[in-house]
Computed example of a mutant assay.
Amino acid sequence: MSTLHFEILPPIKITLIKRFYKEHYTGTKPKSDDLIVTAYESHTIVGVVRFRHVATYRLLTGMAVAAERRYQGIGSQLLRYCRKEILSATDYCFAYQHLESFYQRSGFTTIPIDELPAELKTLYMRYTEQGKSLIPMHYLANNA
């Protein structure tokens, strides 16, 4: 297996990410103002995670690994890179229930809905009212 390389994607390359999501995580709509981190192997994107700006916070969203590369630790390595390079106390995620422990291993802590900043709480409520079963989480570096 070759080595993974990580990159904070320049907005000009957003087309590459749109194509990746279309193949591996449909329904996701990356925007050029998102902070996007990619995992490459042999010049091919094998994983991606987006951070959406919501007021003064960032919401980790749209994490995806190429279908044929799942369960090989790519997502964990991607989050390890993010922990080292970009994650801070202003980062949150809404995890699917089956991924709660995955995000906990990367420094996210499950929090009560009432502890979400107002802007994120509104977004969380909208998602859950659509039937999505999500858990609010907050990144705390000392938990990593």
Rank of each mutant, 00 (worst) to 15 (best):
Y103D: 07
F6E: 10
Y124T: 00
P10F: 11
L134S: 08
I86N: 01
P11N: 11
K31V: 11
H43W: 07
K18H: 11
Y124A: 00
S2M: 01
S106G: 04
S101Y: 14
N143L: 07
A144V: 03
E85R: 05
I113F: 02
L123P: 04
F102M: 08
D91M: 05
V37Q: 12
A141F: 03
L99Q: 11
P30S: 13
V46P: 03
L35M: 10
L60N: 01
I113S: 08
T38E: 13
L60V: 04
L134Q: 06
K84V: 02
Q104A: 15
T15Q: 13
R105P: 03
L140D: 07
G73A: 08
A141Q: 15
V49T: 15
S106H: 13
K84N: 12
G75Q: 02
A89H: 15
P136D: 07
P11Q: 13
Q77I: 00
S2Q: 03
E100A: 15
T28F: 09
I36M: 10
E23A: 14
E115M: 05
I17H: 01
K13I: 01
N142T: 09
T110V: 15
P112L: 02
Y103M: 06
V37W: 12
K22P: 00
I111D: 03
T44R: 05
E85P: 12
R105Y: 07
K31F: 13
Y139D: 02
F108P: 03
Y25R: 09
Q72K: 00
H43Q: 12
P112E: 09
Q97M: 15
P112R: 03
E119N: 15
E115S: 08
E68Q: 14
T122G: 09
G62H: 04
P10H: 15
L123M: 12
A89F: 14
I8Q: 10
R70K: 14
G27N: 13
Q77L: 05
Y139C: 04
F108E: 02
T44D: 12
K22E: 10
D33C: 13
P112M: 01
P11A: 11
E119V: 14
L79F: 11
L87G: 04
R19C: 07
K84Y: 06
L140F: 02
P112F: 00
I45F: 03
P136M: 06
T56S: 14
K121C: 04
I12C: 01
K13F: 07
I111M: 07
E7F: 04
P112S: 10
R58V: 06
A64R: 06
P117V: 04
V54E: 13
I14Q: 02
H5W: 03
V49I: 15
H43M: 10
I17R: 00
L116I: 08
L79K: 05
G131R: 08
A64D: 14
Y124C: 00
Y71F: 05
Y40K: 01
I74F: 06
C93N: 05
L99H: 11
H43V: 06
D34F: 13
T44I: 08
L120E: 06
K121Q: 10
P112H: 03
T128E: 08
R80C: 09
E68L: 06
K29R: 02
Y57V: 05
A67L: 12
K13N: 13
E100R: 13
H43T: 07
H98N: 12
G75N: 03
L134P: 10
Y96H: 12
F108L: 06
E129K: 11
S76R: 02
D114F: 01
M125Q: 15
D33W: 14
P117R: 04
